[in-house]
Design a binder for these strands. Sequence first.
DNA 1: ACCGCCGGGTGCC
DNA 2: ACCGCCGGGTGCC
Length: 896
Amino acid sequence: MQTSCYVCNVKKYAPASTFPTDQPASQRLGVHGLCPAVSPEPEADGSVLFGHLRGTVVGLRYYTGVVNRGEMVGLVRQPQNQHDRNAVMVANIYGNQVGHIKRELAAAMAYVMDNNLAKVEGVVPSGTNNSFTMPVMLSFWGKEEHKATVNEFMARRGFKLNTSGSGGATGTDGMTIDLHIVLSFQLRNSFDNLFEGLMESKDGEKEAAKAVGTPLLPHQKQALSWMCARENKSGLPPFWEKRGELYYNSLTCFSAKEIPERVRGGILADDMGLGKTLTTIALILTNFHQGKPLPVEKCVSVAVCYFFQHLIFFTLCLNNYSSCEEASVFLEDLDFAAALGGSATDTGVKKKKTAKKATPTIDLSARTTLIIAPLSVLSNWLDQFEQHVHPDVKLNVYLYYGSARNRSKKFLSSQDVVITTYNVLSADFSCKSKSPLHGIDWLRIVLDEGHIIRNPNAQTSKAVLDLKAQRRWILSGTPIQNSVKDLWMLLAFLRLKPFDVREWWNRVIQRPVTLGDRAGVQNLQTLVKCITLRRTKTSEVNGRPLVFLPEKTVCVEQVELSRTEREEYELARNEGRNTIRRYVAEGTVLRNYADVLAILMRLRQHCCHPDLLAKTLSELGAGATPAELRERLIEKLRLVLASGSDEECSVCLDSVQLPVITHCAHVYCRPCIAQVISTEQVHDTARCPLCRSEIKTSELVEFPQEEVEEENTPNSEKWRTSSKVQALMGNLLRLRCEDSSIKCLVVSQFTRFLTILENPLREHGFTFVRLDGTMSQKKRTRVIQEFQSTAADSPAIMLLSLKAGGVGLNLTAASHVFLMDPAWNPATEEQCIDRCHRLGQKRKVVVTKFIVKDSVEEKMVEIQRGKQDLVEKAFGSTNSDRKTSRIDDIKALMEL
DNA sequence: ACCGCCGGGTGCC
DNA sequence: ACCGCCGGGTGCC
């Protein structure tokens, strides 16, 4: 038939063509259900609107694609169209062809599109009764420098773009970057709310299969029930309803003639410690095909022969189902059972059959769940399988890791579970044709710590998107890091139509949300809500807390400085105060922000221990040589970062990654500031987002690689104590007397402070381990295992750097936490405390925060509180508010 | 498409 | 009749 032939044309030829986004049409628009997700990320930012044009879509009667009033359509070049090589196809969001752009207009558009002069988007203003043609409103978007060319060209062809109202919010004046900062700030805060309110009970509870050896807690049964439902329910996906002949989406107003595909899976975003791993194991064992438990081998015989598997399958079923009613179903499942045995030819035939059908039927022979996890948690998965699968049951779990890994597809797809890492997956993918992981039809894929694949351009992300599976899950304690963009990758992985295609995501969600459209945020929220289950430790079910956690007490212990310490402190404070006072008077606080932070840093170090200051550069005069300037900048960078402070990048508002310092002494992530420079450079000179000084890529200074913390082994003879050290030791000694089995975490942001603390610990005969960010993964795991051990000679104390390890650490052996110095971000402290105040903690948890009396530390605590208030009402705050609040913070800290 | 366009049939009123 | 007019066939790119 002609119709399908045209669509096939798209499929076949489009990859050779050029699109404004550099993507093959088939991928961009998901024509014909091709996997749309593997594609370079189009740079949606920085485009300006050139203007609008009213055009005509013709040939409607030849295609099945439907569009409603006001709905968006995609425009795809069809250079290989045999009737007209200028053809521009019109498709709806689901990739179904609606028609073509009328010939003459298409000819003009083809030139513009093929030469990447503009990206054209279409909206159908009036749904139409006309079965032959319909009007379409086209908008042209592109780089500012192409605007005139495009508008002139189109006008010459008789298509004058209407440019009224196209000045636009994406204007390119000097405020662009500031705007970006404001928006990303607002967004971050709306995201904090995005995952709120997801904890209301979604479904009932479900008992796990007998093969799960550990009894589930109520909230885990609830999660299991929700997950099973998401995998099994075959009705319409949320927001879809049938209206006459069409399926209609009440959220997006799209409709389609075909039954919409349901996302089988979702995001389990429970707080860490609530048992996502156990719940996932329960899901694997409980929800095989057709809602039945996974048929598993019994452990009786060592090696069960293939032919006996069926027999055992039936025996197990009889064990699993007690009711006669369900037992009678068995015969119907004969082929299902046979498929489990998995003769290769049999599966092959089945696959072929399914592939041909238009509506995807579910391949019942798929057996294996693929779990992809960061290397650091691999062992945790293995442990948890060991621990939670009933001892009578033999579950085939294969660790796909290491050079000797078994790459046989047949072998892998006969496992119950295959576990691998993101890195292994990515490495295999680099030679895709040989990647066994990409050749298997998985029953289910589970991404552990799924947020780590948030960059869609990363090789790993592409490797993940390219996997084939029936059901997909993302486990993540922190599903959103800092922007809407992060979410796209998650939705694309889940194949949440139509947003797995970048264009629709950008147009329906990303752009509206970025421009501050409430409805956009609302849609996003609704969308996320229906695929996510999130509970926090403090969530309640039926008025009762989700998990029982022992009581936690937080107390602040004031530390008095000794006289000498106080004198030194006051000296430094007065000096710093004078400097900052001058900056405030000049209005140059932000211009000298790094200097200000350095002053604060020194004061904070004074509060801990004088030796932390040893490496501070003596004051340098002005008028330095370039080499000296560079030295000073590196020194500032060191002060800001190296001691473990939690500085945020003002562009992405996240902790700085790949830090660089500008000549105006502001610290950013290299990629962030590089982007600022490249977008601003186009017009004129690039300016620092914080102080508007001129900045250049060539002048960005990085922390020298070779300076890997020259570990001056602390000289114990020269060692001296400090008031804060004394305060800690007093507590530790007292605790050891009271109960020698108590274990403690001693936490500081300054790794050098941890080093100093090693001295008194040794002196008093404490056994301790140390965990900081510089340690290899292997070393970390060993240290944690040592610390968690209940053996009598196991370490009683862990010296922990505040930001080490990040998520997922389990330090429940400790019941006392000593926070040696306050952090700017109270959430970081909370996270750290949560490492021991979590599931598995048997004792009451006591947290002690040491705060030096009459010092910058006290002020920091006050600001911590203030900042939380600020964040709560942050939606709507402006950039200048933010700047003022920073300056106010600094004034308060210095008591100005 | 209740259109435009094409091309064959037709031809005073 | 090298026109006009009528009415049927037909129709995206």
